[in-house]
Design a protein around this nucleic acid. Structure first.
Lengths: 226, 226
DNA sequence: AGTGTTGCTTGATGAATGTCAATGTTCTCA
DNA sequence: TGAGAACATTGACATTCATCAAGCAACACT
């Protein structure tokens, strides 16, 4: 059991520089979790004493406005960690809700424990700081997107990011409504933007199946050139 | 000279846990800068080999869209550092423009140098990680604001944050246009929102002088209750 | 004081997007 | 296979906000 956990964790950069003994110790107190589709993991405001590594599945991180509107902040997929940055705050509370998008497996790690261990692995500290830096950069890019680009731009660049290198055909791996919220548009608007892209002959969509016909034109849309 | 630098730096948490020898070493390679109003410090995309501590004045961090629109990401005021998180990235480039809003003094610190020294001060690592965590939380709150709240909400909560505890009168310390961009609204819209708040009797504004008449109502606006 | 220059405000208009309501589609499960 | 549920799309409409253009302050400098 603990072996299985170690197996999983050792795949992630954050645990790469731990000594076997340290990894043992982390794995000792770590837990393997299974979530069903739609099952919540934690809610915004809950005390944050653990962080997570996604073994399989997808986790939706979202925030709720007072009026009950949901905004998806990010979708975490297999092989990634989340909520590890909270480890260093005073009275840490999760700033988002976490819910499984589909059946998922996670490893949950005790923050206090891990932090204690960090004191003996400066290398891991550096890895973690690198990790946080990237996240900061990502969030700044996100803010940039939200305030400088139109909905169409955001959809277009997201599609380009989704489209595997040179493969012009692919499937959307998350429900459209969730993707819409991730991109900060209403589902209706998302639908219309997609329709517009289809009507312009740039791509076609059948269910979750996307085919890009004119990558250049899509890139133009992503840049905001109408 | 170096003494003066050390003086300044020692006021900031990030340098609090350094040994005198370490602080010496940092100060050795640090530089004191003076910027005039409007003077740029670095541009988005410049190689990021230094980070900064603001001794006095205010630094505007902003991003430029391809079409030339500017979005102010943050205003850094005296006593704070910025760009320190880039230290841990591969080929670090500043993700924003930095410009002095008014005459300012900064201490500029060599990132490489500081990072090297970090290896010998795990305490400082932890302080830095705490710092980055807070920044992450702040950016998430920002995204939340941008996507879930209207312009009026953002203006209202910003005013509340500006208003010193219980003091219902205060001055705006940055030009309205800059504040508008910081809040992701156009100057015209910002002006109208302010007018609207005045017409509702919630506050009055004379130049940069703000007087809040009805704090409760302002809080309601900040929550989005029309 | 006079005159620019800059930043702020105001009004008229339009585009983008949200809202509400109805319909269509897909998927699941009995 | 059929009924229902959840999701997606579409249309009509309202709202928010940006844009354009003009006027108005405040300030700076001869």
């Amino acid at each position: 059991m603990s072996e299985e956990l170690k197996q999983h964790l050792s795949r992630h950069l954050l645990f790469a520089r731990l000594t076997p003994a340290q990894l043992d110790r982390v794995a000792q107190r770590a837990r393997l979790l299974r979530l069903d589709e739609g099952q919540p993991l934690f809610a915004q405001g809950d005390p944050a004493d653990r962080f997570f590594y996604v073994v399989s599945g997808q986790i939706k991180l979202s925030r709720l406005s007072p009026e009950g509107n949901e905004k998806v902040i990010d979708i975490v997929s297999a092989g990634n960690t989340f909520a590890e940055a909270l480890m260093f705050l005073e009275g840490p509370a999760y700033p988002v809700n976490a819910t499984a998008l589909g059946p998922s497996e996670l490893v949950s790690i005790d923050s206090r424990d891990f932090a204690a261990m960090l004191r003996d692995s400066i290398d891991t500290c550096f890895l973690l700081m690198g990790d946080m830096s990237q996240r900061l950069r990502g969030l700044i890019a996100e803010i940039d997107n939200l305030s400088l680009q139109s909905g169409t731009c955001r959809v277009a660049s997201y599609l380009l990011k989704m489209a595997p290198e040179d493969r012009d055909e692919f499937r959307l791996d998350i429900p459209k409504g969730v993707m819409a919220s991730r991109l900060s548009v209403k589902p209706e608007t998302f639908s219309r933007i997609l329709r517009n892209l289809q009507d312009s002959g740039i791509l076609s969509i059948k269910g979750a199946q996307v085919t890009i016909h004119d990558r250049g034109a899509l890139e133009d849309r992503a840049e905001g050139l109408t």
